[in-house]
Simulated assay, not measured.
Amino acid sequence: MDKKEKESLKRRYYKLRIRIRHADNRIFIFIFFLIISGTLWFLNALSKDYVTELDIPVNFVGIPREFKSNQQLPQNLTIQASGQGFSLMRHKITSRGVPFKFDIKQYFSNQKAGKEVSFQIITQLAQKQMEQYYGGEFSILDIYPRTISASFSTIVFKKLPVSFKGDLSFQPQFWQKGDIKITPDSVDVGGPQNVMDTVKKIRTQYIKIERINSLTEFTANLDDNGVFICEQPEVKISVDAEKFTEATIKLPIKVLNAPDRFNIMLFPDQTTVTYRIGIDKYESITANSFTAIVDYNQMSARDINEKIRVELIELPEYIRNVTYHPREVKYLIGEKK
């Protein structure tokens, strides 16, 4: 290829690049104006009035505490709304999760306590309140459903103690310190009359806590069994833990009810007690903390081969897993001189 041909190819290449660049600019300008015109069209469309249907979340309030619904009331209503496109679109975007409070207390004003109360909720009576709730952004033309069938049973309330239901496990060498504390320890619970006459307490829902080694606090929901109404649906549970150790102590065995004229000898005359105790109370235990006895009235012979049972009648309430040995001893009864 000679020099002239190379120069010709270069000129063609540069011309082609210029054409492509101009074409790219025209495409970019076209897309830009297309977006602008589409946006203007969209904004113009939203400025017009429309009639559409909207789903709005609702929460029925004003139900007296002595009534319980026999069925689940609707969580959403459908409204036919008229307004600017801007307002209707903004409502669809922002209104979710913000329920309208539908007050139905007026339906209970003339109702007497009984086994069941039934009535029809007329949704259109709340039309003005709904429009005010949504700031007058649109007009409500209709509400669906127009009526809602509702029935309620009469319930009675009484204060019941709370009982913990669950499993607690501790780290090795730790155990529960004191009682489980429940706050509050009793709550107001409502339910049908025939049920409330028999129920004595309300339990928490089952909960499992493992490897406790210090004061542990957690929240537990009350178990309503699908029947009860709990004005306070949850309680606070506190469980304390302490480290324990195992200890032993030797005790003299006392003889009860022995006549003064007899001398009672025991073989052996001591028993060894083994127990577990919290570390912080370990030093408080002495032999005087226990009483081991045998009862003369249970001795039937003077033969040394006879045995009598040893009883541990006094011991600290804060020790556990108590065992002692021997549990029986031989005895010899002799008259005093």
Rank of each mutant, 00 (worst) to 15 (best):
I122L: 13
V273P: 01
M299R: 14
F86R: 09
I209C: 02
I249K: 04
K115T: 10
I279A: 12
G114K: 14
G62A: 05
Q173C: 05
P74T: 14
G191A: 03
M196E: 05
E66P: 03
D185R: 11
T52N: 02
F244W: 15
Y275E: 09
R276Y: 03
N194S: 14
P326A: 12
I93R: 07
L256W: 07
K337H: 09
F267A: 15
S169C: 00
I180E: 10
Q132M: 08
F262C: 09
K158Y: 04
M130V: 03
F228K: 06
D260Q: 10
T204N: 02
N305E: 04
P259D: 15
V273M: 05
V310W: 05
I319H: 11
E246D: 13
R12P: 03
H325N: 15
S149N: 15
T123A: 09
I277D: 11
N225F: 04
F100K: 11
E53L: 05
N263W: 03
I29R: 12
R146N: 15
K330V: 04
R302D: 13
I63C: 09
T216N: 11
E53D: 11
L141M: 10
T219L: 03
S139K: 07
G226L: 05
L141A: 10
I180T: 13
E335N: 11
I285K: 02
K243G: 00
A126H: 12
L46I: 08
T78G: 03
E246N: 09
V58L: 02
T216E: 14
P268N: 06
R19P: 02
F32E: 08
Q270D: 01
Y296G: 13
E311S: 15
Y144I: 02
K208C: 00
R211K: 14
V189F: 06
R11H: 04
I104M: 00
N297A: 08
Q270C: 02
R327L: 08
V239M: 13
F262L: 12
C230G: 02
T147H: 07
Q106V: 08
L315Q: 06
E317W: 08
G114V: 13
K236S: 13
V195G: 10
I27A: 01
L73I: 10
V156M: 07
T248Y: 03
S37Q: 06
D295N: 15
S284P: 03
G38Q: 02
L312P: 08
